[in-house]
Design a protein around this nucleic acid. Sequence first.
DNA 1: CTCAATTTTCAGGAATTTCTGAAACTTTGA
DNA 2: TCAAAGTTTCAGAAATTCCTGAAAATTGAG
Lengths: 188, 188
Amino acid sequence: MNLSPLVQSFVLHFGEMGSRWGINRTVGQIYALLYVSEKPLNADEIAESLSFSRSNVSMGLKELESWRLVRLQHFPGDRREYFSTPDDVWAIFKTLAEERKKREVEPTLTMLRGAIMETPASDAERHAQQRMKEMHQLIELVTTWFSDIQHMDVETLQRLMKLGSQVQKILQFTHSLSKLTSRDGDRE
Amino acid sequence: MNLSPLVQSFVLHFGEMGSRWGINRTVGQIYALLYVSEKPLNADEIAESLSFSRSNVSMGLKELESWRLVRLQHFPGDRREYFSTPDDVWAIFKTLAEERKKREVEPTLTMLRGAIMETPASDAERHAQQRMKEMHQLIELVTTWFSDIQHMDVETLQRLMKLGSQVQKILQFTHSLSKLTSRDGDRE
DNA sequence: CTCAATTTTCAGGAATTTCTGAAACTTTGA
DNA sequence: TCAAAGTTTCAGAAATTCCTGAAAATTGAG
């Protein structure tokens, strides 16, 4: 199969960016190819299009499966497995965010929680622990917020995003509102 | 200098995570060490603490400078350069997000914009281009939203995050409000 | 069950990235 | 201007990661 110039540049770009995104060239290119492909592709087609060895493609697809970024399907009368990416870009985005969270931040949170539990044995440790607490607090806040947001339906999410920094105004409004109505509005 | 166990495990963790975050072991460890250190450290102290060669530390610090994650300072009567991380974790987070955006998404946006401009030469290209448009739109929306949010002051940002998915309710409220007051409230 | 089609595994070669020591460069104080 | 203190550069060694071909394992039709 011969890739058209447009597709080719897209595929090559994903290959090159791969290393920055923590995946390798093969995986990046395979994903890009599947993403723009009109129909699902089998491993041989992928290997041929990208000039990778069949085994390399197999490993790349396994990696993509572990990221839950590809879907697998079969066609009647054909034993080969066909791969594609979900159509809904929002779903893709959410999956990606979840996986990155699991791989890139969860382990750190665990480590931080452990470290914060320890009894500091020196002044230096006390200070270090304080810094870790600050980091932990921030990560915790940001990630739970993220998962909150992820569970919103796409409609609302888009509206929120389009609103941009204007949320600030609504927030200020409701904040002063709560100050008016609540007995201890300026606590916090 | 001898690292206390608490600091050591923190430093080692950052070293190991380094590769997942797109930086290397040295850079990860140096950053971690500076982050928990009570006072700024010079390159020799870092090299000794982490048992890296002096030159490796130099390259690592350069890398961290390019990420704008370390500050450089001097002490009177000492010609050596001392390094530290900003105290404010929110500032750190913002810097990190900006840099990652610059390195990991901006190039892709540029590529996508270019590809979308082209005139498709086939059916496959037409489809590919459509997919690229979807991706472009999503990335554009998410990143501009992100930079909107970044420009909010930390107070507001924290309030927004603590609110979590409850924004949804406020949003729904204001949405129906605008429907009531605006002549064409259900356009979008 | 058998066999051919297909996929996966894996040892080791290729490519890339990281790290070091030596040398070059820069800065500053005398 | 020079020398000492400090920093950066860079060639190549070391370590790691990627990729391949061959072989093993799996799958499903007959």
